[in-house]
């Protein structure tokens, strides 16, 4: 770990699709999986490359952007303030459902609590008042209920299926 006064330490991360990322230490340490890698390998060399076999380059770039901004917000004492909300809203606005899914899978694998909370809330908002078919398409789920099982659930909560948004 770098000490005060020393040059900023860079962490090397390698994605599933073979891309190498150079990330500032405080940002990389937001990833619980990276943090525990170094906790468990205390004498790892500074140029150790941490392999991330479950994450590809695109979502990782998105995650680094998010964590970098949030590390700065915290350093500036802006955590929880309006500018954070504004950043989050801008960040997510351009993301498609597909990108959002890749982000949450990656954030879950990397174990980044703050980002996971934010993505969870975003996905919840995108699923509110949506039809069962929309949710299946969103998550890419093959329906493996039998028709009878599905009918039973729909019947029991008939009121919850009325007036949902058009897909």
């Amino acid at each position: 770990m770098s000490k005060l006064g020393q040059a900023k330490r860079i962490i090397f991360l390698k994605t599933a699709d073979g891309q190498l990322f150079e990330v500032d230490e405080p940002v990389a340490m937001e990833f619980e999986i990276v943090k525990s890698f170094f906790d468990e390998n205390e004498d790892a060399a500074d140029d150790t490359v941490v392999p991330l076999p479950n994450v590809s380059a695109e979502p990782l770039a998105g995650i680094i952007e998010f964590c970098k901004a949030h590390v700065e917000f915290r350093a500036n004492g802006a955590a929880g303030k309006d500018e954070v909300k504004k950043f989050n809203a801008e960040y997510i606005k351009e993301k498609s459902n597909e990108q959002l899914k890749e982000l949450i899978l990656a954030a879950n694998y990397l174990n980044i609590k703050e980002m996971l909370d934010f993505l969870t809330e975003t996905i919840a908002n995108r699923l509110k008042n949506k039809s069962v078919e929309y949710v299946r398409a969103f998550f890419g789920i093959e329906n493996d209920f039998t028709p009878q099982e599905e009918e039973a659930v729909r019947k029991e909560y008939e009121w919850a299926f009325e007036g949902v948004d058009e897909d």
Partner: peptide
Amino acid sequence: LTSPRDACRLSAVS
């Protein structure tokens, strides 16, 4: 983070 009504509907997804 949705609502009770949404949760009942989500239980029919899979």
